[in-house]
Design a protein around this nucleic acid. Structure first.
Lengths: 193, 193
DNA sequence: CAATTCATGTAAGGTGTTACATGATTAC
DNA sequence: GTAATCATGTAACACCTTACATGAATTG
């Protein structure tokens, strides 16, 4: 058995709620979870296979009236136990890799324009992400008034929004700082003329 | 050759500034870079080996008066070129994995106490990180007044501080939301008595 | 004299990504 | 009819972590 295998627990968690195919699982993850944990098909299908072999889930081939045939998976009691045990364990610390910061860290080696462009693109990407999260949050808030079923989902969306906003704020400040540097450069240029 | 191999470029970037041993490289990364990109010895030593084979760096064994012998690496012109080319490429999007959010997403399956405890620990960890970043930033600001040599380093520290603060803010709000839920629960409890 | 730090490295295994392969159905 | 979506899967490889192994020197 694997050591961590968070993908497996994500699949278990989703199946605890409803029966799903590998394809469905991917869609759910992309929509609700991918902002803090991405998984590809290359991980999902093999994992489903070993999970079935280990008795955590069962497969039934569903002959839908239309479309290709689906493998529908259901969680077993054993799977439910494995999931709950895992949920009680302390989690590993978050795992973040920001290639943009590595490149910026060595920013002296390229032109300032290059660095500024990089930060702008980063900011644009995350303005979009922040907008998506805000939309999700607003929709969820309507639903939360009636029942708190989605409270934990809401917490993850809130997290996403906060982080993306922090990215955007940083990008603004970073651009200002580079701009200030430019002004100084120009002043000094003026001194020498 | 590898496809991305960001570790390699980090090593090149550090060697562009000064000659270092594998051990030195690890220390530098831990101190300045690990907040956005971690690397272990298991990656550094093998990478140095292949980099030497590919002519990006050269090794000289330094017989220091005291302590064990060191392998000091220097970047070559070829290595410098490889680094600069990479610095001009657009970066991959950031890679983040938050196991805590996965566990929270399925938070309904465990007790609320469990979830609250989790968030508190997360917050404590990042209060410490934020404090470290603030200290770094304050120190760097003193230096920046004299020369802007460390401006790019400063930008990465600023990033760290913003992100850790966003984590902390989120944790506060999340705790409040869980608390509010509790109050509601108690109210409903009262209704039924 | 015991623990920590300095210093280098290997082996094994787990994790994750990318590319490839296939084929039916649906929407334009 | 062509492009996109539905649906499943494999193979290769790149990446990264962990554990192990060794031994000298320094610090308390």
């Amino acid at each position: 058995m694997a050591k961590e295998n968070t993908s497996m627990y994500i699949i278990l968690g989703l199946l605890e709620h409803e029966d799903l195919s590998g394809y469905d699982i991917k869609k759910k993850i992309d929509f609700m979870i991918s902002h803090f944990w991405e998984i590809g098909y290359g991980q999902i299908y093999p994992t489903l296979k070993t999970m079935e072999e280990n008795g955590m889930i069962t497969k039934k081939v569903s002959e839908t009236s239309k479309g290709p045939e689906k493998n529908l998976y259901s969680i077993t009691d054993s799977g439910r136990e494995v999931l709950k045990e895992w949920l009680l364990l302390p989690e590993a610390k978050e795992y973040t890799k920001y290639e943009i910061l590595v490149k910026l860290f060595f920013g002296k080696l390229v032109s300032e324009e290059e660095n500024r462009k990089r930060i702008e693109l980063f900011q644009e990407r995350h303005l979009q992400n922040a907008a998506i999260m805000k939309m999700f949050r607003t929709n969820l808030e309507q639903v939360l008034k009636e029942s708190e079923d989605h409270l934990y989902y809401y917490l993850t969306v809130l997290f996403g929004e906060k982080i993306y906003n922090a990215y955007i704020e940083w990008a603004k400040e970073a651009e200002e700082l580079l701009g200030k540097k430019n002004e100084n450069d120009n002043l000094h240029k003026g001194d020498n003329e």
